[in-house]
Write a protein that binds this DNA or RNA. Structure first.
Length: 887
RNA sequence: GGACGCGUAGCUCAGCGGGAGAGCACCACGUUGACAUCGUGGGGGUCGCUGGUUCGAUCCCAGCCGCGUCCACCA
């Protein structure tokens, strides 16, 4: 006998261990099985499972479990990302906390060793957490972006792109993170609004004592690097000054006034200081006018030696204050205004102001790679779901900028470039090849030094769809599983990751990395607030799993996944889905108590009893719904369809109506038992992708009775139901009995068969109307409930109204008779409603325009509606009359 | 500044040309019964506002109001 409730804490770890040990997570070896692969969006190796992972990985697991049951060679390839910046920072922080020497003192090799040590000890916690969620990843193929194989892929891609001219080295402005002292990509910068100032500064015009040109700036310290002042060529106010020079205050340098379209007469004073080394727009102006580029900052954003001695070594913000004060002293500060402005911050910390900074970096020609990636989506080779994300993808791809891929970090893939004594770069996969290339170049051996920098983490992630499959060394899995079936990910990494995988996948594999991108929403708290540590509203999925079990969490994730923009998560919701699991568990318990055991060779096509024919048709319906939903990666629909079927069809009606039949015994009961067991089995299969633990447990618990199970549920075959299961006649008859019974009050739950008691049909309240309905449908009910005779015996002691059938007695204890006044009011209201409906519909059918232009089926529908409403009104009128007679 | 999306029951959301739905919450009744409950019934909505198209608009179009997100840039 099943326990009263399912105990996730005890069952889930046991089942997971069984699955994992049995090797079912690996794709089948069957060469005829069509392949279906998903690569996991690799979580940071430093990461902890958060609610977004729970959503994302639940959906992947649902899909892969479904495909596995469908008989595909289903591969879910897991792994983690080395997450250059995040990991390096974490280990550095830890070193600092432990009072160890810093990274630079430690030296590169020793530091990297420390990071590996850290990874060995703490890294990969998240892959254990994924197991708790039930993720059926093929752990035997787990990958890490810094694995040797993936590193080989990175080197090969980098070198190939370089030889194709798609990677190059250039000195340009980059987004510089001064705290880490590395370049970051545009995507790693976030612009935040802050209350700042705009200072207006007088630049004295050379040779015209006492005359100034006033420029406005929000970053006065950058003036030390000014190399021009620009005005608009058509700006008459300044036309006479173009070509003259100003003496740059404090720096005491002469710089020209140039005419350039960039200067906007409407903005500020119309004259703009040009600092090519510290501003992206100014950089372009500088290039156009061939201006010098003077960098005035050190890598940690202090003023450098290009500046007057006074400011050297000062932090950029301290220098700002000082410079403003000095300008004021010189009478060169015209004014200062409060100014709301957007300031670039480091996206990770949102604390460190990013500085445009002039450095040598490696760049990927993203615009060239983007072309085919755009076309692939235009042609539908890869589709986004929801489709609206394609526009986001196109907008970004069509305006893509070169991608800065070098990072001045230590933890990551070292750039495979070696420099000769004259600075010539030799980009090769190995040092030997670089040496050979250098020898060919110089005509003799020269000492080479490898580039100190590493690659952007997203460079290796961009290869994930094929590097994890063994490319470039072992192509067997690449041939089998590439392109993958679907990518399921959050919209926040469409640019970071999806776009790069598209570009690199198409370029190197000649085909898209995945046919479908399922984009899921951001999860918020129950009040719609973004979860954040500072707000303290972060929901820990592991805690939820502790409290409700993984199945409930998974079901919640699937059910909410349909929401496209954001998902509001509340515990109440999870609780509701946990209750759903309990409902199913108890339905199974009921089946067990009533000996609903699977029968060898049972064929649902052969069932005779109308209840069994009906549930067969309902089963076909839900099977279709769930299968279609999963084929379309519509997880919410799959969840809802099973929910409705299990609760509202199977439990509410099927099991309730089966009770008298089961109690009646004989062939009808036997058939009903077998059909019930078959239906339960179907439910377990349909629900397994979403609720793997409970369904597997029930599968196992029901294995003892009936024919032996030949496999675990996880590898059971997804059913394939014949269309012939649809039985319209049975559906119609059952609709009748449901309507008849359902119109009475409190009937449904009362169709219970207490243990050891005589089977009884208990109706709490049987008013005149219920009695009438039961009488009128006596014949149908008799047949459908599978009893030989049903007789209505009238009230007993103001309490019970027994039905006596052959061998079965149904008692209808009447707690209270219906409040006749209320019932009369209800009927009157309903009659009024019907009247208005009849009036409206009749009017519509009398409208010549409607008759002329509405589609035939709509007209027909309206005719039917009219007829139904009229019939219903008549019935009600009669009922009302009878009621009045009773009253 | 550009783009995308969203305003439907108290809450979270489905629906998207042919007489508005679900879950939760709420109220009432029942519950020795497979059910950490469960069941039955009920209240509650001019489907953001204003126009337009249509025989017919919650649904399509335009404008407005409110909210959210992304991108760009602000000397």
């Amino acid at each position: 006998m099943l326990e009263k409730t399912f105990d996730p804490a005890a069952v889930e770890p046991r089942l997971y261990a069984t699955w994992e040990a049995s090797g079912v997570f690996a794709p089948t070896d069957d060469p005829d099985a069509p392949p279906f692969a998903i690569v996991i969006p690799p979580p940071n190796v430093t990461g902890q499972l958060h609610i977004g992972h729970a959503l994302n990985n639940t959906l992947q697991d649902v899909l892969i479990r479904y495909q596995r049951m469908r008989g595909r060679a289903a591969l879910w390839l897991p792994g983690t990302d080395h997450a250059g910046i995040a990991t390096q920072m974490m280990v550095e922080r830890q070193l600092a906390e432990q009072g160890n020497i810093g990274r630079r003192e430690l030296g590169r090799e020793a530091f990297i060793e420390k990071v590996w040590e850290w990874k060995g000890r703490y890294g990969g916690a998240i892959v254990q957490q994924l197991r708790r969620l039930g993720a059926s990843c093929d752990w035997s193929r787990e990958r890490f972006t810094l694995d040797e194989g993936l590193s080989a892929a990175v080197r090969k891609v980098f070198v190939t792109l370089h030889k194709q001219g798609l990677i190059y080295r250039a000195k340009r402005l980059v987004n510089w993170q001064p705290q880490l002292q590395t370049a970051v990509s545009d995507l790693e910068v976030v612009n935040l609004e802050v209350n700042g100032h705009m200072w207006r500064i007088r630049y004295p015009i050379e040779g015209e004592s006492g005359r100034f040109i006033v420029v406005a700036t929000t970053r006065p310290e950058t003036m030390l690097g000014d190399t021009a002042v620009a005005v608009h060529p058509d700006d008459e106010r300044y036309a006479h000054l173009v070509g003259k020079q100003v003496r740059l205050p404090l720096a005491d340098r002469l710089i020209p006034i140039v005419a350039d379209d960039y200067a906007d007469p409407e903005k500020g004073t119309g004259a703009v200081k040009i600092t090519p080394a510290h501003d992206f727009n100014d950089f372009r102006v500088g290039q156009r006018h061939d201006l010098p580029m003077i960098n005035v900052l050190t890598p940690d954003a202090k003023i450098n030696d290009e500046a007057p001695a006074k400011y050297r070594g000062m932090d950029r913000f301290a220098a700002r204050k000082e410079i403003v004060a000095d300008l004021d002293d010189l009478g060169l500060l015209e004014g200062v205004d409060a100014n709301k402005m957007m300031v670039p911050y480091d996206q990770k910390s949102e604390m460190v102001v990013i500085e445009p900074y002039l450095t040598d970096q490696w760049w990927v020609d993203a615009a060239t790679l983007a072309g085919p990636a755009i076309r692939a989506v235009e042609q539908g080779k890869t589709v986004f779901q929801p489709k609206a994300w394609e526009k986001t993808y196109f907008d970004w791809m069509r305006n893509i900028e070169p991608w800065c891929v070098s990072r001045q970090l230590w933890w990551g893939h070292r750039i495979p470039a070696w420099f000769g004594p004259d600075g010539t770069a030799f980009v090769e996969e190995t040092e030997e090849e670089a040496k050979a290339a250098a020898r060919a170049h110089y005509g003799k051996d020269e000492p080479l030094t490898q580039d100190e920098d590493v690659l952007d983490t997203w460079f290796s992630s961009g290869l994930w769809a094929f590097s994890t499959l063994g490319w470039p060394n072992d192509l067997a899995d690449v041939k089998r599983f590439y392109p993958t079936g679907a990518l399921i990910t959050g919209f926040d990494i469409i640019f970071f990751w999806v776009a790069r995988m598209m570009m690199l996948g198409i370029h190197f594999m000649g085909d898209v990395p995945f046919h479908k991108v399922v984009v899921n929403a951001l999860i918020r708290d129950e009040r719609g607030q973004k979860m954040s540590k500072t707000k303290g509203n972060v929901v820990d999925p592991l805690e939820l799993i502790d409290d409700y079990g993984a199945d409930a969490v998974r079901f919640t994730m699937a059910a909410l996944s349909g929401q496209q923009r954001s998902i509001s998560l509340s515990r109440q919701r999870i609780e509701g889905y946990r209750n759903f699991g309990t409902k199913l568990w108890n339905a199974a318990r009921f089946c067990q108590m009533n000996d609903c055991v699977r029968v060898d060779g049972f064929d649902p096509a052969s069932v005779k009893h109308v209840q069994n024919r009906w549930i067969r048709g309902e089963a076909l319906k839900v099977w279709r719904e769930v299968t279609d939903a999963l084929e379309n990666a519509d997880f919410a629909e799959a969840a809802e369809a099973t929910y409705r079927f299990v609760w509202n069809v199977f439990c509410d009606w099927r099991l309730e109506l089966a009770k008298p039949v089961l109690a009646g015994g004989g062939a009808a009961a036997a058939e009903t038992r077998a059909m019930t067991a078959w239906t339960l089995d179907l439910i377990l299969k349909l629900l397994h992708p979403i609720m793997p633990f409970m369904t597997e447990e029930l599968w196992e618990k029901t294995a003892g009775a009936g024919p032996p199970r030949d496999s675990m549920l996880i590898t059971a075959q997804w059913p394939d139901l014949p269309a012939s299961y649809a039985d319209d006649a049975a559906a119609a008859e059952m609709a009748l009995v449901i309507a008849a019974i359902g119109e009475g009050r409190s009937v449904r739950s009362e169709l219970n068969v207490p243990n050891g008691a005589r089977p009884a049909l208990l109706v709490a309240e049987a008013g005149p109307r219920e009695r009438r309905i039961l009488e009128e449908n006596n014949e149908a009910i008799r047949r459908l409930l599978g009893v030989d005779g049903v007789r209505f015996d009238g009230a007993v002691d103001g309490g019970a109204v027994p039905y006596i059938a052959e061998g079965v007695s149904f008692a209808l204890p009447v707690a209270e008779f219906i409040d006749l006044a209320a019932e009369r009011a209800r009927l009157a209201k309903e009659t009024a409603r019907l009247s208005s409906e009849i009036e409206r519909t009749a009017k519509k059918l009398g409208n010549p325009d409607f008759m002329a232009r509405a589609p035939e089926e709509v007209v027909e529908e309206n005719r039917e509606r009219l007829a139904e409403a009229e019939a219903a009104r008549e019935r009600l009128a009669a009922a009302l009359k009878r009621l009045e007679a009773v009253g």
